[in-house]
């Protein structure tokens, strides 16, 4: 408590105030934050690799340059020719990891966007109208939240059949209630704020209050959540394809499926588990680092 007083004292002694709005100030803080920069670099690498996969990958991921040399007990590890070694069918592991980034990024981004969109619709409905609309929407959300995420994703993917689209929809569905609840909570607390009361007292129309005050001021945690969701979506996509619910064409490299198919060779060729696993970790870590730091940068409580 004495500390907060010191901070209060220094705060009021501060003459230089950041110019511009909260988002710009948050951006400035992020740019100077080593952890956030690490996250940015990891994500940039991930995106560059995904987008430029055909240019970077040394081999076609479907080619089997090592087909002749492969036996179940002898899968060559990293070498000068194949940096990440060969997989169980004699394909270049590095190229497959590189192409796998495309699938992961695609699934992650689309699933996150779908989940956020769905969650925001529900959240805005509940947060803007309140009363019985809120009760109905939130009960639906509660039910969705009560089903374990992976179980729901498996169920959806199983119903919709094996395809990348169903993976995306399944992961999105898991995230819908999370976004809905987050946004609704934020909007509820913003609705109680003085400036919303002020807007009401000015005679601003309700729709306008929701759209120009309540919603924009409720978005910060949603943006943070979206970043973190990208990380979990990548992991969930891997998990689903690990369980055999990924895309229909087994030749298209997916990190999760790559992990799954290495199970039998774990003893003889541990590199087959290591590289896709690392790829999943690094991509998820990048988004998590950014998300956590963004949360702090956007939250006035963490300001220094």
């Amino acid at each position: 408590m004495s500390l907060s007083q010191v901070e209060a004292a220094t705060e009021s002694d501060q003459v230089e105030q950041p110019v511009g709005n909260l988002r710009q100030a948050a951006w400035r803080r992020l740019r100077r934050d080593p952890v956030a920069i690490t996250g940015f670099v990891l994500i940039a690498m991930f995106i560059v690799v995904a987008v430029l996969a055909p240019l970077i990958a040394p081999y076609d991921p479907r080619d089997t340059p090592g087909a002749g040399t492969i036996t179940p007990t002898n899968i060559p590890g990293p070498s000068a020719e194949h940096w990440f070694g060969l997989d169980e069918q004699g394909r270049d592991e590095l190229s497959r990891v590189i192409y796998g980034a495309r699938q992961s990024l695609l699934v992650g981004v689309v699933a996150m966007l779908l989940g956020m969109a769905g969650g925001m619709v529900l959240g805005v409905l509940a947060g803007a109208f309140g009363r019985w609309v809120d009760s109905v929407v939130m009960r639906i959300v509660d039910i969705m939240l009560s089903i374990p995420g992976l179980l729901m994703a498996i169920a959806i993917a199983a119903v919709l059949g094996r395809s990348l689209t169903s993976v995306m929809i399944a992961i999105a569905a898991v995230n819908v209630p999370i976004f809905a609840r987050l946004l609704r909570g934020q909007m509820m607390s913003q609705r109680e704020s003085d400036y919303v009361l002020a807007a009401r007292s000015l005679g601003v129309r309700r729709r306008s209050i929701v759209l120009s005050h309540v919603l924009p001021n409720s978005m910060s945690p949603v943006i943070v959540q979206a970043t973190l969701t990208l990380a979990t979506a990548i992991i969930e996509a891997a998990a689903l394809s690990f369980l055999g619910l990924g895309g229909a064409d087994p030749a298209v490299p997916e990190w999760g499926r790559m992990l799954a198919s290495t199970q039998r060779y774990l003893a003889s060729a541990p590199h087959l588990a290591l590289f896709p696993g690392l790829a999943i970790m690094v991509a998820a870590l990048g988004f998590t680092l950014i998300g956590e730091r963004l949360r702090e940068a956007l939250d006035p409580k963490y300001r220094r």
């Binding site: 004495s2 010191v6 004292a9």
Partner: peptide, 22 residues
């Protein structure tokens, strides 16, 4: 008034200011 340093003065007398950055 706020920012006049009155509270910081009292915390300094009590030895309650943090050592870091002060």
């Amino acid at each position: 008034e706020s920012g006049s340093g009155k509270s910081v003065t009292s915390l300094a007398v009590m030895g309650l200011l943090p050592r870091r950055n002060v």
